[in-house]
Design a protein around this nucleic acid. Sequence first.
DNA 1: TGACAATGTTACCAACCCGTAACATTTACT
DNA 2: AGTAAATGTTACGGGTTGGTAACATTGTCA
Lengths: 204, 204
Amino acid sequence: MTAPARLAPPPRERIIDAARDLFRKHGIKGIGVDAIAEAAESNKMTLYRHFGSKDDLVVVCIERAAAEAEGFWADLKAAHPDDPRAQLQDWVRRAGEFVTVAHCNCELLDAAAQLVESDHPARHVVEEIRKGHKRRLAALCRDAGVAEPDLLVDALTLLIEGARFNWRSTGPTGAAARFVAIAETVVTAFMAKSPCGGSSGRAH
Amino acid sequence: MTAPARLAPPPRERIIDAARDLFRKHGIKGIGVDAIAEAAESNKMTLYRHFGSKDDLVVVCIERAAAEAEGFWADLKAAHPDDPRAQLQDWVRRAGEFVTVAHCNCELLDAAAQLVESDHPARHVVEEIRKGHKRRLAALCRDAGVAEPDLLVDALTLLIEGARFNWRSTGPTGAAARFVAIAETVVTAFMAKSPCGGSSGRAH
DNA sequence: TGACAATGTTACCAACCCGTAACATTTACT
DNA sequence: AGTAAATGTTACGGGTTGGTAACATTGTCA
């Protein structure tokens, strides 16, 4: 048995997990490296040996969250091969789970929100990840035959970001709990008005 | 001229203004009282003489934002007396301005987001204000004859919170810039399906 | 067993931050 | 003018935080 890593993950992983959890709960600026190291059942020294600084740890956490989101898209495509409309419907459902489940990748949002007007190294990482999400979702909407795919993408973006935000502050009793029903209504509304221009007309 | 307060507002007001601005830019936990006092062209002592603590200052800032929102609702009703549909349409337009304008009352959102999992005294204040907004918006949707007013309220809530959030991180190039067009589409979609049940059916 | 890397422990530093004390200064009002 | 309140200035204390140094411990592999 040369690999006892099955039961106890190596400290690096424990630290990342603890950091993601605590960042989500208290915010990036709301938790200290000492608390993270303790929650990870490790210590501050090993934390600083793996990640040179708190900022670097934040970046690693965000990249980890982005990697998980990568799996999200892969699963989505695998579940409904060559059926973009079904993929879009399922996107709404799965996104709803990501909102309500505790272990969602809110780090992106937290980071984006808390690091405004600051030159935190995680900022452009978040930017890139967001762009990637938007690009994939836009492709999905386009393939699904939506009339104004870009506008639907923006609508879903606002809805899901608002839902994540709202869930954190009001919990299951707030508007975020009905994200799926709302998003489905919005999607069908955009599907319906395929040839006709929108209410306010702006073509694109 | 016993009132020279015309040119330079009293320090209390300057401090509140500066605090709101800096809280918005750097977050509640991201800025210190020293910086606030300096930005207000005052000093830490007078800050603490007016507001006993930083937490109290946060509460005052939030209440100030809520008071401004009060004027928002009053203007809305005054602009379209006895015409709830026009009020709802105008709500979307004005809410869009509140999103994009720099001096919006994001404090509520910021506070709500950053004080999760914390017993900050401002939390329940934010809760109350949110409830009030939701109640007013629900009444508006109901009076406007929407089929599922509660669901539309939640949809608009997610959209506007998402828009505020998105605006702060991506600015005018992000999805938040198209909030008005999106919200208008959603409202008309909800208006259209007055007798028929929604896609996912849940009546209420 | 011996050597080496990874991890843990303790202590420490400099910087920052909230809040207070004591004193100086300006402003407002009679 | 004169008094009192409001404001400004300086300094300080206790606490926390990010980050480092030095040393002890554990585990791994030959």
